[in-house]
Design a protein around this nucleic acid. Structure first.
Length: 854
RNA sequence: GCGAAAGUGGCGGAAUUGGCAGACGCGCUGGACUUAGGAUCCAGUGCCUCACGGCAUAGGGGUUCGACUCCCCUCUUUCGCACCA
């Protein structure tokens, strides 16, 4: 700790590059910047979404990590024992693509990238506990993916079923969704088709209800993210009913959310993929055409009225009516039962279909105000109403009818109340190389068997040649595929698929609770640190990653590993980093240096200023962290990105804004440097009162409130700028003035240190404080010292501001009102004979308002 | 189409529970110091008006002594979902 003994000499000029390097090294060497577990303090777990090691850190990462770092440093100064880890989401397709295209082994590519990115992260001065650094592509990590897989298999939460994948016939390989570009293969440009493969699934639907109910406990999450989760789970209440097929003992089971409209069902629709479709349809050729359309349709291309009559009729079980059975492409096999009853009068899709096919439309719900006079419907009526032409249920409000009809069908044995979810089970098989091997072997005699737990991990072979042809790359690796059956010891072969990388990120926050040299699932560690108190990341993970993590946490809870059910108490979804784009009508997007003087450097044509868009290489509006830290230093980069907007909003990158942040730090430096001797001398003197002391207390208050209230760092920094402005215009002459200045400067450094740690540490040492500023506690404000002696009295007449005057803060309410009445403008009105009807007084900190109403 | 969020100066953005709209920064204007300034410092800067004053928080209405804030309608933008029966 000798390095923090004070007596440090400041350079005249602020030199961020030198001081940042110095302190980063010193903090690292002395361990000041890493936080060790200390059970005497309250824990705080602050986590940023770990990066995929794509090669370089970009501004989005920087923003994410800086927000997390500020929270970490702030909470630490407030006396918390903060867990703040970092790691690498290291499995994934880009590494595999690099291997296919350039022959670089995926592991080397990944580890090299991690090396480089770790250096970049170090340069922005974030304080991580690197003893917990994890890399998901290491066997030590993915072993546990396999372990969880087997545990889930044992509990029936992992199972195999057929599912379709994107298939490129030309390359004879499976494609991930992101490798399919406009229905074509990313490499050979040939058309992609669907292929059925047997794949592994995790039964997330078993937790659907719990995940949905848990949404209501996520009070620390942004509302829209919770809404997206609920919407994704998509619960709907309804009923399942059997519609018998005429002249047969076959029944068609349908799902509906509107049993109240049962009397209005005028036809039944089957999905083209429904097993009964082929069985019932007379025109097989026609069905085949529709099936082809159905298979290739997606949300954008779907036709709403494509379908055909099967030639058969069904019986409406509630009234015995004979209604036709259709096949329709708008009915999805994956949802509900793959068959519906169509009620064209009360469902817009059914209405459209019925109109196109000339089918009966029978109204059974009337709007409450129009029961007596019904007109033919021009569109489906989907609102509330009263049942009509519905047998014994006629006259009931439809809400009530749902309940009564559900009871009726259950009693009659023709149906049952039913709950459906949009949420599907999570398919985790990937026909890919760079991922966690699925720990299953197939024996000819014994079938599919999990690898015994004590044989884990199943190691992913490295340095294999990837050609990008054929099915799963691992299938071509002889040494990997060959295995022994754990049951009969006979020859067996391994599953050659790997797991979805979302598996890796579904529990990494639990792994961090223990150091890398400790047991991965150490219960006391997990119990101590979980849940994550503050999670920070992009909205793009609002559904999948967060939902999978919530699912995994519950599975791990059921396995006795975790005690909590929700992994993330508070969630902050930070906005994107955007920048203005520049475009030449001839040459497209331009770099700023190609558009000097508003002219395109190639054709000299005038440049259009494009929209402000998310930074991306293709739009040529990227600022790299490297150029920024080399030019201005990390502290400037940090201050700008925090000052530009509150964290949840997008920020608009501006080079001039960065300059502004840099100037702010320079002004701070200059203020301290130019008063350094007096500051050092008056360090010990107790300060007195005065405007600067008062402003300092107010600033401590303001900064603390801004941080506490939703991490609004932009207003916190603004308050510090105000204090600096006031300190700059303060002209000290007496000893006590310098003592005041010292107090202001010292507080300012403490308050600014989470935002700009390097410069604050340098100046802290410069003014002769002892010990690292990082270990200092957050300053407290004194309510009394922050109070103004004089307050501003705003005088309103009929709600309009007419005058402002300074009055003593000690005046009581009546005195203030009296004072306001003596105002010249008020007097004029009084003299004119008007009588005030009301005198409303509002007190605010530092000011008060009197509204005189005539 | 459905759902959610948002709309404030030339720009990014401020404004506890309804209580001085525009904090702070950028930009711009003028000045100082300079051989010079794209450095630094000082002053000014919502709009209209010579001024008194008036008008301003997407637009329109309402509640209120008082509305960026609450209520109703309209417009625009962004995001999510998109045949989920």
């Amino acid at each position: 700790m000798d390095d923090f003994r004070g007596g440090h000499i400041l350079e005249e000029k602020y030199n961020p590059i030198a001081i940042e390097k110095k302190w980063q090294e010193l903090w690292h060497e002395t361990g000041v910047d890493s936080i060790v577990r200390d059970d005497s303090k309250k824990k705080f777990y602050c986590l940023e979404m770990f990066p995929y090691p794509s090669g370089k850190i970009h501004m989005g990462h920087i923003r994410n990590y800086v927000i997390g770092d500020v929270i970490t440093r702030y909470k630490r100064m407030r006396g918390f024992n903060v867990l703040h880890p970092m790691g690498w989401d290291a499995f994934g397709l880009p590494a595999e693509n690099a291997a296919i295209l350039h022959g670089t082994p995926a592991s080397k590519w990944t580890l090299d990238n991690i090396d480089y990115m770790k250096k970049q992260i170090g340069k922005i001065g974030c304080s991580y506990d690197w003893s917990r650094e994890l890399t998901t592509c290491t066997p030590q990590y993915y072993k546990w993916n396999q372990w969880f897989f087997i545990k889930m298999l044992e509990r029936g939460l992992a199972y195999k079923k057929n599912s379709s994948v994107n298939w490129c016939g030309q390359c004879s390989t499976v494609l991930a969704n992101e490798q399919v570009i406009e229905d074509k293969c990313w490499r050979c440009d040939s058309v992609v088709s669907k292929k059925e493969l047997e794949q592994w699934f995790f039964k997330i639907t078993a937790y659907a209800e719990e995940l949905l109910a848990g949404c209501d406990t996520l009070t620390g999450w942004p509302d829209h993210v919770v809404a997206m989760q609920k919407n994704w789970i998509g619960k709907s209440l309804g009923a399942e009913l059997d519609f018998p097929v005429e002249n047969s003992d076959i029944k068609i089971r349908i799902f509906t959310t509107r049993p109240d409209t049962l009397f209005g069902a005028t036809f039944v629709c089957l999905s083209p993929a429904h097993p009964l479709a082929a069985f019932l349809t007379e025109d097989q050729e026609g069905l085949r055409r529709i099936r082809t359309e159905y298979d290739k349709q997606d949300a954008a291309t779907a036709q709403t009225t494509l379908g055909m009559f099967t030639g058969k009729y069904a019986v409406n079980p509630i009234n015995g009516e004979r209604i036709p059975i259709y096949v329709a492409t708008f009915v999805l096999m994956e949802y509900g039962t793959g068959a519906i009853m169509s009620v064209p009068a009360h469902d817009s899709r059914d209405f459209e279909f019925a109109t196109a096919h000339n089918l009966t439309i029978k109204q059974v719900i009337a709007p409450p105000e129009a029961v007596s006079e019904l007109k033919p419907l021009a569109e489906a009526y989907e609102g509330e109403g009263i049942l009509i032409e519905s047998g014994d249920f006629t006259g009931l409000p439809n809400k009530e009818a749902i309940v009564r009809i559900n009871e009726y069908i259950e009693n009659k044995g023709i149906g049952t109340a039913s709950v459906k979810y949009k949420l599907r089970d999570w398919g985790i098989s990937r026909q890919r190389y760079w991922g966690t091997p699925i720990p299953v072997v197939y024996c000819e005699n014994c079938g599919a068997l999990p690898v015994p737990l004590d044989e884990l991990p199943v190691i992913l072979p490295e340095n294999i040649e990837l050609k990008g042809m054929g099915g799963s790359p691992l299938a071509a690796v002889e040494g990997f595929v060959a295995a022994k059956c754990p049951k009969c010891n006979g020859p067996a072969r391994r599953d050659t698929d790997t797991m979805d990388t979302f598996v890796d990120s579904s529990w990494y926050f639990i792994r961090y609770c223990s150091k890398m040299n400790e047991d991965a699932l150490d219960k006391p560690n997990i119990e101590h640190f979980m849940p994550v108190d503050q999670y920070i990341g992009g909205v793009e993970h609002a559904v999948l990653h967060l939902l999978y993590s919530r699912f995994f946490t519950r599975v791990l809870r059921d396995l006795g590993i975790v005690a909590v059910e929700e992994p993330f108490t508070r969630l902050l979804t930070q906005g994107m980093v955007c920048k203005e784009t520049l475009k030449c009508p001839e040459h497209g997007w331009l770099f700023p240096e190609e558009a000097k003087g508003g002219k395109c450097s190639q054709c000299n044509g005038s440049v259009e200023r494009g929209r402000v868009e998310k930074m991306s290489k293709s739009k040529k509006n990227v600022v790299t962290p490297d150029e920024l830290t080399e030019r201005y230093g990390a502290d400037t980069a940090r201050v700008f990105s925090l000052f530009a907007a509150p964290p949840e909003k997008d920020i608009d990158w501006s080079d001039q804004g960065v300059e502004g942040a840099y100037r702010f730090l320079n002004r701070l430096w200059t203020l301290i440097y130019s008063n350094i001797e007096q500051l050092k001398t008056h360090r010990q003197k107790t300060h007195t009162t005065g405007p600067l002391i008062r402003k300092t207390h107010q600033t401590i208050n303001k900064v603390t409130q801004s941080v506490e209230r939703d991490y609004h760092f932009n207003t916190a920094i603004a308050a510090l700028m105000e204090l600096l402005n006031e300190a700059n215009s303060f002209r000290p002459s007496k000893d006590e003035d310098y003592a005041s200045l010292y107090f202001a400067v010292r507080s300012m450094l403490l308050l600014l240190s989470p935002f700009a740690p390097h410069i604050c540490e340098e100046l802290w040492q410069g003014i002769g404080e002892k010990g690292s500023i990082l270990l200092h506690s957050w300053p407290e404000w004194d309510e009394e010292a922050a109070k103004e002696e004089e307050i501003e009295l705003v005088i309103q007449i009929n709600g309009k501001v007419r005058a402002k005057e300074k009055v003593s803060a000690s005046l009581d309410d009546d005195n203030i009102r009296e004072f306001a009445l003596k105002n010249i403008k008020v007097m004029e009105l009084l003299a004119a004979g008007k009588q005030p009807r009301q005198k409303i007084l509002v007190k605010r900190p530092g000011s008060c308002i009197v509204n005189i109403v005539f």
